[in-house]
Amino acid sequence: MTAPNVPAAPRLAPAGLVYLLITSIGWGLTWPVMKHLLGEWPPLSARGWTGMAGAALLALLALASRQSLIVPRVQWGRLVLSALLNVTSWLTLIGLALLWLPASEAAVIAATMPVWAALLAWPILGERPTLKRTLALLLAFGGIAALMGGNGLAASLSKLPGIVLALAGSFGFALGTVTAKRFPVKLPPLTSASWQILVGCVPVVIGGVVFEHPDPQVLSAVGWSSMAYMTVVQFCISYACWFAALARLPASVAAIGTLLVPVIGVVASAIVLHEPLGPGQIAALVMTLAGVLLATRS
């Protein structure tokens, strides 16, 4: 008896995997870079101005790729909503969270975004939560509980504002992701990214000017290098590679591939910033990544 013909699984495009790896490395290294920059510049100004510059570079890249920058009038409402959720809230809340948390721990909490997205898909998209998604949420909260352990009650309470802010930022990004599926912004990828980052960074920059009064003269050479890294790598190269990866890989593969981001963030923060990498941090990373894997595979 001959075996039935079973279609082979489609091969993953090597170029897509390379783009995904570049994206994960770029975003992962942003965590220690941003944490260092906060020692020289306040969070809203650091995030807002680098985002504005990154949006300009993405716009130039879009033009070079022959993508129109014109936004139809009917798309502006969706674009602004997506920008406020995916950019404004993320940059603001995560930037402030780093004032209370090490970069490695903020990266772990931020990795819970796919879990929130899986839960929000029920009321917004009608996708009922499964048992796996419920377990994913429990694992993610278990990871956060491991981070709350600290070195005692005082250490835990001192982390609480940062944990709340990081969770709020992750939740807002997840809400923006699910809302974008319900009300998609119909623009070319680079055009959409450049406009969303630009629009989303405007409130962040205004907040920095009003409340922080940043002084460029206080930035050291390392500080300027950090600003350049966030502008070119975080907002331009990584986003461009992300869209290139999405064009060549299944969405599920791309989503799981981004799990490298918190891993790289944790390891890089331990090496560059000498942040602790003990049993608590490792347990939190493992539990959070396990929860995210369950959420993305269910």
Results as ranks from 00 to 15, higher is better:
Val292Asp: 14
Val33Leu: 11
Val218Arg: 09
Glu105Tyr: 00
Thr231Asn: 07
Leu119Gln: 08
Ala121Leu: 05
Ala193Thr: 12
Val205Gln: 06
Ala295Met: 08
Ala193Asn: 04
Pro102Lys: 00
Pro10Met: 10
Ala284Met: 09
Ser298Leu: 07
Met287Asp: 14
Trp76Asp: 00
Leu81Ser: 06
Ala13Phe: 04
Trp31Phe: 15
Arg11Phe: 05
Val253Cys: 06
Ser226His: 05
Pro189Ala: 02
Cys201Asn: 10
Gly265Ile: 07
Gly51Asn: 06
Lys186Trp: 12
Ala111Asp: 04
Trp195Pro: 01
Val108Tyr: 03
Ile206Gln: 03
Lys132Cys: 05
Ala254Met: 12
Ser89Gly: 00
Thr23His: 10
Gly54Cys: 06
Thr30Met: 15
Ser156His: 07
Pro14Glu: 11
Glu212Tyr: 12
Val18Ile: 15
Gly54Asn: 06
Ala62Phe: 12
Ala110Glu: 12
Ala240Glu: 10
Trp195Arg: 01
Leu137Lys: 13
Ala174Tyr: 02
Thr30Pro: 09
Met52Gly: 00
Ala154Glu: 14
Leu21Met: 12
Pro188Met: 15
Gly126Arg: 08
Leu139Ile: 15
Val233Ile: 15
Leu60Gln: 06
Leu139His: 10
Val253Thr: 13
Leu198Trp: 05
Ile271Met: 04
Gln281His: 09
Ala193Ser: 07
Trp31Thr: 12
Trp116Leu: 01
Gly172Ala: 11
Pro7Glu: 12
Ser45Asp: 07
Leu101Trp: 02
Ala146Thr: 15
Ala56Arg: 02
Tyr239Asn: 14
Leu44Asp: 09
Val218Leu: 06
Pro161Leu: 12
Ala180His: 10
Leu259Ser: 11
Gly265Cys: 05
Gly26Phe: 05
Trp242Met: 13
Val218Gln: 07
Ala118Trp: 05
Gly207Leu: 06
Leu17Asn: 11
Val210Ala: 12
Thr130His: 02
Trp49Phe: 15
Thr231Trp: 06
Cys241His: 03
Ala155Val: 08
Ser298Cys: 08
Arg78His: 10
Ala145Phe: 15
Ala268Cys: 01
Thr258His: 08
Ile22Lys: 04
Ala8Pro: 08
Ala9Thr: 11
Val115Gln: 00
Ser82Val: 03
Ala270Gly: 06
Val253Phe: 10
Lys35Ser: 09
Pro214Phe: 14
Thr258Ile: 09
Pro250Cys: 02
Val263Asp: 04
Gln234Thr: 14
Val266Trp: 06
Val108Thr: 01
Ala56Asp: 03
Val267Ala: 02
Ser156Pro: 10
Val87Thr: 03
Tyr229His: 10
Ala166Gly: 02
Ser82Thr: 11
Phe171Tyr: 02
Met227Tyr: 14
Gly28Ile: 15
Gly172Met: 08
Pro32Arg: 04
Ala64Tyr: 07
Ala46Phe: 07
Gly291Leu: 13
Ala168Gln: 01
Ser170Leu: 06
Phe235Gln: 04
Val266Thr: 01
Val74Asp: 13
Leu60Cys: 11
Tyr229Ser: 07
Trp49Met: 13
Leu61Lys: 07
Leu81His: 02
Ser298Asn: 12
Val266Gln: 00
Ala56Cys: 09
Ile163Glu: 03
Ala97Gln: 03
Ala245Gly: 04
Ala255Ser: 15
Leu289Ala: 07
Thr288Asn: 12
Ala244Pro: 08
Met113Tyr: 05
Thr231Ala: 10
Arg133Thr: 11
Ser65Glu: 14
Ile94Asn: 04
His213Pro: 14
Val267Thr: 02
